[in-house]
Amino acid sequence: MMPLLEVKDVSKRFGGLLAVSNVSFTLNQGEILGLIGPNGAGKTTLFNVVNGVFKSDGGSINFDGHDIAGKSPHRVVQMGLARTHQIVQPLNEMTVRDNVTVGACFGREYLGLNAARRVAGDVLEQVGMGARANQLARSLTIAGKKRLEVARALAAKPKLLLLDEVLAGLNPTEIAKMIELVRSIRDSGVSVFMIEHLMQAVMNLSDRIVVLNFGQKLAEGRPEEVARNPQVIEAYLGDPNIAEKLTEKN
């Protein structure tokens, strides 16, 4: 079966800095693909290139059978590729419900206002924020804002969801809940590509992992394989036995 997302030889240069360098990988339908690497490795930049915020300097990006390289972000999400941001971007002076309605209105189904509001209600229930629907987005806690970010992206009915450090800044309870949410999202048929630093979460959630360092891909494969890769250990993980340690616990 054809991969849902196929990235080939993609690069991104900012003046003198090559942030992403000839990166290639695939993401299959129904899988959770993790993206890890040290800070500054180019992970968020890669996300930005995939969803159209930045134009790539060469290479191709194929999503769901379409070439999306160079398409603007609003076109990309309408084709079924939604994303969340590392630093949350709530629409502050609008209610939680309105925030999610925007996602539903302008996403893949491009719904009218009333239909979108209904979808928004459903999505809010799905992520467990139904009670906060009428709150202004700016009054949410950081966990709430992260959840809102995910709900908004889900409302666009994506085939693929890009999650950028969705666990950062959360306490252990919130992390556990978010991990559950990510699993349920995948189980509902949405593929997931996630940037994460929390190794326990990544190792347990991901079906496969891509590792970036200095803009280049170091490894791609199942969590156990990647965790044993000496280059990955040296560049990022540090501990050669981390795979056993983390997968043991959960």
């Binding site: 969803n51 915020v53 603007s72 972000p73 609003h74 999400v77 309408q78 994303r83 941001h85 971007q89 709530p90 629409l91 502050n92 002076e93 609008m94 309105d98 925007v102 996602g103 209105c105 302008f106 996403g107 491009y110 908004r152 666009a156």
Partner: peptide, 15 residues
Amino acid sequence: FAIRENEDAASVLGV
């Protein structure tokens, strides 16, 4: 309104 609140986020949301 989405543009007013956060234009870049609005664009990523499909506006």
